[in-house]
């Protein structure tokens, strides 16, 4: 614990903002899926990261990313390794971002019988766009990203056997639509869910947006 407090003492002598980002530590759930891709994206932003496979790796984290992969595999492993309850407890107090399979795990219901964290007031529909041959790339309009980049450029979104966010509760902010009315990115309090994979692109704005969520808490 002492190690964690020492740097913050040093930081308080620096002008605000300088090096602050380096203080943040993000966990990436590494049971299965493209956790490496998220980690590389955060490495590129100078963020401390750790791959999370066990409960004790959730301590001293400022946020958690649940990556893309197979939601049934991750749910099964999290259940077998008795991680579900600890992940839920973590999520109640910290920022969590789920991409694709991660978004499914954050949702209350996916239309399948499978273990879910169920912390977000959303329901998802798995493989809503069809099988792999229907997977696609598309430029998305995401006005919320102006917080981290004023350019307002479209976001290159990669959808792979992607889920849709079918219903959203009253506290859920919709960040992006596809085909005018289908929801593919949402935020609710400290939680973020995207149907697509910013970690597969070279555009780090969603990762910066997640960091902004943590810093502005």
């Amino acid at each position: 614990m002492g190690v964690r407090y020492l740097p913050s003492l040093i930081m308080s002598y620096l002008p605000s903002g300088v090096g602050k980002r380096n203080m943040i530590k993000i966990g990436i759930l590494a049971l299965q899926g493209d956790f490496d891709e998220h980690q590389k994206m955060l490495d590129g932003l100078g963020i401390n990261t750790i791959q999370v496979r066990k409960s004790n790796q959730l301590t001293n984290l400022d946020g958690l990313i649940i990556p893309g992969g197979e939601s049934t595999t991750m749910g099964k492993l999290a259940t077998d390794f008795q991680l579900m309850e600890d992940l839920r407890t973590f999520a109640m107090r910290h920022a969590v971002w789920g991409t694709c399979a991660g978004a499914i795990l954050l949702s209350k219901n996916s239309g399948h019988v499978q273990p879910l964290l169920g912390v977000m007031d959303i329901t998802t529909a798995r493989n809503a766009f069809g099988r792999q041959v229907e997977s696609f790339e598309i430029d998305l309009n995401v006005p919320a990203l102006k917080v981290v980049d004023p350019s307002d450029a479209p976001f290159p979104a990669i959808f792979i056997r992607a889920p849709l966010i079918e219903t959203t509760g009253p506290g859920v902010e919709i960040l992006a639509y596809i085909n005018d009315d289908q929801v593919v990115a949402v935020r609710e309090d400290q939680w973020l869910a995207t149907s697509f994979h910013p970690e597969l692109s070279t555009d780090n704005r969603f990762h910066r947006y997640f960091l902004e969520m943590i810093q502005s808490k």
């Binding site: 590494a30 049971l31 299965q32 899926g33 493209d34 956790f35 490496d36 891709e37 893309g68 992969g69 197979e70 595999t73 694709c100 399979a101 792999q132 997977s135 990669i158 792979i160 056997r161 994979h197 597969l200």
Partner: peptide, 9 residues
């Protein structure tokens, strides 16, 4: 991308 989703599996 789909292969990237299968990683660690």
């Amino acid at each position: 991308g789909l292969a990237q989703m299968l990683k660690g599996g």
